Computed example of a mutant assay.
Amino acid sequence: MLLAIDTSAGTAVAAVAADGAVLARRATADTRRHAEIIGPFLQEVLAEAEAVSRPDADPLTGVVTGIGPGPFTGLRVGIAAARAVAIARGVPLLPVPSHDAVALELTEGGIAAGRFCVVTDARRREVAVTEYAAALPTPTVVVPARLALRIGFAPDEGVALYEVTEIPAAALAHVAAARLAAGASFPEPQPLYLRAPDVTMPTAPKRVTS
């Protein structure tokens, strides 16, 4: 069983069995209460998943964390929660770019094909954009072409645009499962902020006069 957590947009948590079945999930598009919501969501999803599965058949084998792109505050809540559960349960932490979950869901659902973009709100009147290349009718792999932070984004002609307010945690787990099955590597568990921090360290100490 994989537990997936994403807080790059709203807050989403899901438990997915080894066969891909979704055992439990919780999600909200609220972007202001990640810290308040993540704890109850984790407790409810784990309890529900363990109630409907046999521990010997579906033990927790990994914790998937969405690494963005997304705003600083939201991302660090989800990644920190995923790290904590992985350490507590003694299982691997599996980082996955959050947009990959949306891309997989779009291609497997037959909605997107060829080149398309996944777009999420980056605040400050900007959006985070990942461009993908996908081939149907066997959409098992989606390849990110480029990642950018754009203002007033308009897609290139012929490129479909899909803007979402929530990242599907179950699809995030499916991306991780596909990577594991293919023996593919995972990125470092570093958040994709895209934007430079507002606060910077001073370059030189201030002069002090008496």
Rank of each mutant, 00 (worst) to 15 (best):
residue 102 V to E: 07
residue 102 V to R: 09
residue 102 V to N: 10
residue 103 A to T: 04
residue 103 A to D: 04
residue 104 L to G: 10
residue 104 L to S: 08
residue 104 L to R: 12
residue 104 L to M: 07
residue 104 L to Q: 11
residue 104 L to H: 07
residue 105 E to F: 02
residue 105 E to R: 13
residue 106 L to P: 13
residue 106 L to E: 02
residue 106 L to D: 05
residue 106 L to F: 05
residue 107 T to Q: 10
residue 107 T to K: 04
residue 107 T to P: 09
residue 108 E to V: 00
residue 109 G to L: 02
residue 109 G to K: 06
residue 109 G to W: 02
residue 109 G to E: 03
residue 109 G to I: 04
residue 110 G to V: 07
residue 110 G to Y: 08
residue 110 G to T: 08
residue 110 G to K: 13
residue 111 I to C: 07
residue 111 I to S: 13
residue 111 I to V: 13
residue 112 A to M: 04
residue 112 A to H: 06
residue 112 A to D: 05
residue 113 A to L: 00
residue 114 G to L: 07
residue 115 R to K: 12
residue 115 R to D: 02
residue 115 R to L: 02
residue 116 F to K: 05
residue 117 C to T: 08
residue 117 C to K: 06
residue 117 C to P: 03
residue 117 C to F: 01
residue 117 C to A: 15
residue 118 V to N: 06
residue 119 V to R: 06
residue 119 V to D: 04
residue 119 V to M: 08
residue 120 T to N: 11
residue 121 D to K: 01
residue 122 A to P: 04
residue 123 R to K: 14
residue 123 R to A: 08
residue 123 R to G: 01
residue 123 R to H: 09
residue 123 R to M: 08
residue 125 R to M: 08
residue 125 R to P: 01
residue 125 R to W: 00
residue 125 R to H: 14
residue 125 R to C: 04
residue 125 R to N: 12
residue 125 R to A: 11
residue 125 R to Y: 07
residue 125 R to S: 11
residue 126 E to F: 04
residue 126 E to K: 09
residue 126 E to G: 06
residue 126 E to P: 04
residue 126 E to M: 10
residue 126 E to Y: 02
residue 127 V to Q: 14
residue 127 V to M: 00
residue 127 V to D: 11
residue 127 V to G: 02
residue 128 A to G: 12
residue 128 A to P: 05
residue 130 T to F: 01
residue 130 T to D: 05
residue 130 T to A: 13
residue 130 T to E: 06
residue 131 E to C: 09
residue 132 Y to M: 00
residue 133 A to Q: 15
residue 133 A to V: 12
residue 134 A to L: 03
residue 134 A to C: 10
residue 134 A to W: 04
residue 135 A to G: 13
residue 136 L to T: 13
residue 137 P to E: 09
residue 137 P to D: 14
residue 138 T to F: 10
residue 140 T to F: 08
residue 140 T to Y: 10
residue 140 T to L: 12
residue 140 T to S: 14
residue 140 T to A: 15
residue 143 V to C: 09
residue 143 V to E: 15
residue 144 P to K: 10
residue 144 P to W: 01
residue 145 A to D: 15
residue 145 A to C: 13
residue 145 A to G: 15
residue 145 A to L: 15
residue 146 R to E: 11
residue 146 R to S: 10
residue 147 L to T: 13
residue 148 A to I: 02
residue 148 A to D: 12
residue 148 A to G: 12
residue 148 A to P: 01
residue 148 A to S: 14
residue 149 L to H: 07
residue 149 L to K: 08
residue 150 R to Y: 00
residue 150 R to K: 12
residue 150 R to C: 08
residue 150 R to L: 11
residue 151 I to W: 11
residue 151 I to K: 14
residue 151 I to F: 12
residue 151 I to P: 06
residue 151 I to T: 13
residue 151 I to M: 12
residue 152 G to H: 05
residue 152 G to R: 10
residue 152 G to I: 00
residue 154 A to L: 00
residue 155 P to R: 08
